[in-house]
C-alpha cells in the first residue's frame, strides 16, 4: 500500500517536472527566435535593446504553449522523462517531441554563431592574413638570447606548482576523511560537518584558480606567492574531493576485520582503510602536480609569477620572437610533465 502511494506521488512529481521542462523549452524557443532570428538576422539590428519584459513575455508564451500542448505528442518534457508510452515498433527519435528537441539544438547553434560573432570574412581578409603571417614568422624564429631568463622563470613555475601541491597534500589527506560520506554520515554532527565541508569545497573549486590568483595578487602582492596560494587552494579542494571519493569506494571487509580484532577506531582506519587508498592517492597527487604546472604558466599571466608573467610582459611589448621562445619552453615543460606523470602513474598500478 505504502509503495503504491509513493509510486503515485512519484508520477506526480515527474509530471510537474515535465511541465516545467516544457515551459522552459517553449520560452527558450520564443525568446531566441525573437532576439536572434527576428531582431538580429531579419531586421539586422546591430545593438538590439534588452528589456526585462522580453524574457517575461517569453515565459508567458512558454506557459501558454506548455499548457496547450502538454498532453499532445509535442510535449518534450513528457517525452524525455519517458511519460509518453511508445509502441514497440515506435522510436522516440521520430516522434514530434523529438523534433522540438532538434529545433532547440539548431536554434542554440545559430545563436552561438551570432553571439561569438563568427565571421569568415575577417578570418580570410588580406589584412588579417598579413598579421597572422607576421606573428607566425616571429614565433618560429625564437630569440634564444633570453633562454636563460626564460629557463629561470620556468624553474620558478615548476617549484611554485610543486610547493602548492606539497602543502595541499596533508591538508587534503585529513579533509578527505572528513568529506567521506561513509565515514561521516553515521550521526547528525558528522553529517553537518560533512555537508558544510562539501559545500565550502564545491564553492572554492568552482572558482577558477585564475580568479583566485587575481584575488591573492591584490592580497599578498603580485608574484609567485600569490600564484602558489591560488594553486594550493584549488589543489586542496580538488584533492579532497578525489581522496574522499576514493575512501567512499573502499571495501568494507578489512574495516570489519579490524573492528572485530578490537582495534581502536584510529587503528581501524589506518589498517583497514589506508592500505586500500595509498596507490590511488599517489596517482591523483602526481596528476595534480602535473595539472598545477600547466595551470601555473597560465596563472603567471595575471601576475602569479613564473614563466607566465614573463610571457605577459613580452606579449605586451609585442616582442613576438621572445614570446616564441617562451611558448617553446612552456610546451617542453608541459610535455615533459605529462609524460613523466603518466609513466609514474602507470608504474604505480
Amino acid at each position: 500500500m505504502q509503495k503504491k502511494i509513493s509510486k503515485v506521488k512519484n508520477k506526480n512529481v515527474q509530471m510537474v517536472k515535465a511541465f516545467i521542462l516544457d515551459t522552459l523549452a517553449w520560452a527558450y524557443i520564443a525568446l531566441v527566435s525573437y532576439k536572434v532570428l527576428y531582431d538580429k538576422i531579419y531586421i539586422e539590428n546591430r545593438y538590439p535593446e534588452f528589456a526585462w519584459k522580453q524574457p517575461l513575455y517569453a515565459l508567458y508564451f512558454g506557459l501558454a504553449a506548455a499548457a496547450l500542448l502538454f498532453f499532445t505528442n509535442f510535449s518534450l518534457g513528457r517525452g524525455s522523462l519517458g511519460l509518453i508510452k511508445l509502441r514497440d515498433d515506435e522510436k522516440a527519435t521520430t516522434k514530434p517531441f523529438a523534433f522540438i528537441g532538434y529545433l532547440l539544438i539548431i536554434l542554440t547553434f545559430v545563436t552561438g554563431f551570432y553571439v561569438s560573432q563568427v565571421s569568415l570574412k575577417e578570418f580570410f581578409s588580406s589584412q588579417g592574413l598579413e598579421g597572422a603571417k607576421r606573428i607566425f614568422t616571429a614565433l618560429f624564429h625564437p630569440n634564444w638570447s633570453i633562454f636563460e631568463q626564460g629557463l629561470f622563470a620556468a624553474i620558478e613555475t615548476i617549484y611554485m606548482a610543486f610547493i602548492a601541491t606539497a602543502i595541499a597534500i596533508p591538508i587534503a589527506f585529513i579533509l578527505g576523511f572528513i568529506a567521506a560520506r561513509n565515514l561521516m554520515t553515521g550521526n547528525p554532527v558528522g553529517f553537518f560537518i560533512y555537508t558544510a565541508l562539501r559545500t565550502v569545497l564545491n564553492v572554492s573549486r568552482s572558482i577558477e584558480p585564475l580568479v583566485w590568483a587575481i584575488i591573492f595578487s591584490v592580497w599578498v602582492g603580485i608574484g609567485p606567492f600569490s600564484g602558489m596560494l591560488a594553486l594550493c587552494l584549488h589543489s586542496i579542494a580538488s584533492l579532497t574531493k578525489q581522496y574522499s571519493e576514493q575512501i567512499e569506494s573502499v571495501d568494507d571487509g578489512p574495516i570489519e576485520a579490524m573492528t572485530a580484532t578490537g582495534a581502536h577506531p584510529v587503528q581501524v582506519v589506518w589498517f583497514g582503510v589506508v592500505p586500500q587508498i595509498v596507490l590511488p592517492y599517489l596517482s591523483y597527487t602526481i596528476y595534480r602536480w602535473d595539472i598545477n604546472v600547466r595551470m601555473a604558466t597560465v596563472i603567471g599571466l595575471v601576475g602569479g609569477g613564473g614563466i607566465g608573467n614573463l610571457l605577459m610582459q613580452y606579449q605586451g611589448q609585442a616582442r613576438w620572437n621572445e614570446v616564441g621562445l617562451l611558448v617553446i619552453l612552456i610546451a617542453v615543460i608541459v610535455w615533459t610533465m605529462d609524460w613523466a606523470s603518466s609513466v609514474i602513474r602507470e608504474a604505480l598500478k
Binding site: 571487509g253 578489512p254 570489519e256 576485520a257 579490524m258 573492528t259 572485530a260 580484532t261 578490537g262 582495534a263 581502536h264 589498517f271 583497514g272 592500505p275 586500500q276 595509498v278 596507490l279
Partner: peptide
Amino acid sequence: ALRKIRSEIGMIFQHFNLIPRS
C-alpha cells in the same frame, strides 16, 4: 570495554578480509 570483549573473540570471513598490499 567493547574493544576488550572483541579482542577475546576472533573472527574469520568468507572473503578473508586481509589488509591489502601487506
